[in-house]
Amino acid sequence: MNIFDELGKIYSEIDNICASIQVQARSKRQRKKESADFRKRQFNNQAYFLFMFTRLEDRVRDISDTLIDNKVATLTDWKTKRTWEIIHKQKSNDSLHFMNRVALLTPKGQIDYNLIKQYYTQRNNIGHGGSFTIAISIPTVIADMKRFYKDLKG
């Protein structure tokens, strides 16, 4: 089982428990309890989304690092190599932006790039104390993350 399936399984277990309690509270017209469990499910969504996104961030970092190192080590023509040397410097001083790393692995402006950018925006909202600004479906996130993990190549 890969990490996304594993996280998805734990996420579902927690979400199912909270959903069940939420329905029971709704049946008993316990509005406060229903709202509290709805909120718990939202936090669960945020926590697992963030957890999954960090796995993708690691993957993007690893593949882009390898790509950059290989280019700098193997290119001999200065005209081509100079760009990679600048990128390598940014990598070394940790100033290479995440979305620029993504752009090294999938064409900028195309479907996968745009999708990762949308998720990255949500990741930043959650990471800086906010909440999702659009609805998130964790099963969809899992499917997308698995695909990115497999398809992104240096």
Binding site: A19, S20, V23, Q24, L115, I134, S137, T140, D144
Partner: peptide
């Protein structure tokens, strides 16, 4: 929603 045109939760006693 990312990648869709709306999402609805269905909740039951089982999840």
């Amino acid at each position: 929603v990312i990648g869709a045109n709306g999402i609805v939760d269905i909740l039951s006693n089982k999840g």
